[in-house]
Amino acid sequence: MPIDWAQLGKDTDRKILERGVSSEWVANKAGVDRKTVDRLRKGMVVRPVSLKSIADVLSLRISDQFEGNRASRATPVDAFAPIHLGGYGKAHFEPYIGHYYLFRNSYDYDDRVICSAFEIFWDDSASHLKWRDKQVNKRDDGKTFSYEFEGSVSIPPGTSVTQFIGDTGKGFTRLITATALRGGPPPHFKGILLGINEDSRFGYYPVTSPVYVERCKGQPDMRELARCVGSHPKDRVWHEGARDELRLISKSYGSFSKRAFDPS
């Protein structure tokens, strides 16, 4: 049977009032954010790992509902990510799902910004959020290269952090550590990218860049993608706001090199 979140909220609120403590006190003891405790008190969905931590602090019985919920995946409320990815629920993080544009600095040219088509979606078979990033880059000689990355979304409990983790299996790896989705408008993430890219001389090399990810108004069509996705001169990038955001992130976290080291 699904978890009765409304009843859990009432039980949690009653336990807190009986003990004469605050949401903040419970949050500190449970190792979660105060807002998580407040959400549970209101009968709203929280991650199973957070629910268990709060229940342990308050001696709240949840075993029957929790085990019944894990055995049933009939509704979106019942869909939870694996614990190693944060144990987050689909219902709570459904606002993350959608199409975005991802902006980063070029790894090879200091005067260019790369824009790619970025998507976050829920994978029912894996039971967690996943991401997909598609890029089309054109060199000065006119040759075009297409790239596609895909990976898992990790949302550590008790933090405001979103991690996009990917490995192509061909030597390319990528980790983006970003904020939680911010409301904007438009909704967006800000973060830092660390990747491993291919080098024809000796294999692979690490790269870093600030990252700004902004939600599209809808699913972009092919004409819009052709105009927006690719390598753009910094002084003529189609989204000046994104260029400015990259500068602000760089200013906040220090300089970013196009490569993490110089192979020469």
Rank of each mutant, 00 (worst) to 15 (best):
Y96G: 04
I97S: 05
G98E: 00
Y100S: 05
Y101H: 02
Y101M: 01
L102I: 11
R104G: 13
Y107C: 02
D110L: 07
S116T: 08
A117Y: 05
F118W: 14
F118G: 07
F118Y: 15
W122L: 02
D123F: 06
D123S: 14
D123M: 05
D123G: 08
D124H: 04
S125R: 15
A126W: 03
A126L: 12
K130E: 15
K130M: 15
K130F: 02
W131H: 00
D133H: 01
D133S: 02
Q135T: 04
Q135P: 00
Q135G: 10
V136R: 14
V136H: 07
V136Q: 14
N137C: 01
N137W: 03
N137I: 09
N137S: 01
T144S: 02
S146L: 01
Y147W: 08
E148L: 03
F149V: 03
E150A: 15
G151S: 04
P157S: 07
G158Q: 10
S160F: 06
S160T: 09
T162G: 13
F164P: 06
F164S: 07
I165C: 04
G166N: 11
G169F: 03
G169W: 03
K170R: 10
G171S: 00
F172Q: 09
F172N: 14
T173E: 12
T173L: 08
L175R: 13
T177I: 09
T179L: 07
L181Q: 10
G183N: 09
G184N: 05
G184K: 07
G184F: 10
P185Y: 14
P186E: 03
P187M: 08
K190F: 06
L193C: 12
L194F: 09
G195M: 09
I196E: 15
N197S: 15
E198Y: 14
D199P: 04
D199Y: 12
S200M: 01
F202S: 07
F202W: 10
G203K: 12
